[in-house]
Design a binder for these strands. Structure first.
Lengths: 145, 145
DNA sequence: TTGACAGATGCAACCCAGTTGCAATAATAT
DNA sequence: ATATTATTGCAACTGGGTTGCATCTGTCAA
């Protein structure tokens, strides 16, 4: 389970662990916290660029890799073309993805999660230790219907 | 819901719908039915090659696209690098993927599916029509633990 | 059996998300 | 101010997947 933290707290946390607070890192983190939705590396680069901050794509990919390793950002597989990234919130949630317009909504899956916890202990008895899961829903949103 | 069919029945079905039974198509379909597990385009090409059947990767990708469109093959997102494909069986199922050795097992998710059906009707009330979902579990298999 | 049509194929070039190696830069501690 | 080392930019690369187009080949009707 991940702490619920703000962008500033995260920056301080990183700093106290020997990480440096560069313009790029700060901007990527702030953007991820601000949008609070699954975004792509391209989205991030574009946003920083619009702010007048020139950051190389390699830097962004490395920063994302780093934040995922630090468990403060999750990879979200909602497109088969490109990876999305989202701040790890306290509440484990999943998404409704519209196949037509691509919009993304969060959805409450607590009842489903409860069944998955049972499944988890069941397969643990069979020798498989589940560590995490992917779950995304696809369909048509209210606006596109 | 998809008919439970064999490779031969599928071929006949395709033929009766104006499709041609080429060596490549037949071989791809037979392989997918034989392995009955999520495989990649590369796996397929390799298998055909080992059988002495030279098939271009473009052909394989086009065949997979076609079979997905025909609803007899599903795309399975268990790797962020490469897409997997699997014959659509009557029983809707999901997978346990070992993060260490990459092995894939099927898992019974019927209880989870029941909760997802409830979720589905709940979000339908909110205007979102769910069409399909992705669900895969990741962790460590019995052999790798 | 033959010929023609349209589906299927191969090829080469391409697209694009993501990665790598390495030299240069810059944030921090002293 | 300086040394240390994390971070960055660049350019080239990787690899899954796609596209356009000329060619081929299953299929079927005559």
């Amino acid at each position: 389970m991940v702490m619920q933290i703000s962008a500033e707290k995260l920056c301080l946390h990183l700093k106290s662990h020997g990480r440096r607070l560069t313009k790029a890192r700060r901007a990527v983190i702030e953007y991820l916290f601000k949008v609070s939705a699954p975004v792509t590396a391209v989205d991030i680069i574009e946003n920083l660029h619009n702010k007048g901050l020139q950051v190389n794509k390699t830097t962004v990919y490395r920063e994302l890799e780093f934040l995922v390793k630090m468990n403060v950002v999750n990879e979200v597989s909602i497109s088969k073309q490109i990876m999305h990234y989202e701040v790890s919130h306290l509440d484990h949630h999943h998404h409704l993805v519209c196949d037509k317009c691509g919009c993304i909504q969060e959805v409450d899956t607590s009842a489903v999660e409860m069944e998955m916890t049972k499944l988890e202990s069941r397969v643990l008895g069979l020798g498989f230790k589940i560590d995490h899961h992917n779950l995304e829903f696809f369909g048509t949103c209210a606006d596109c219907k």
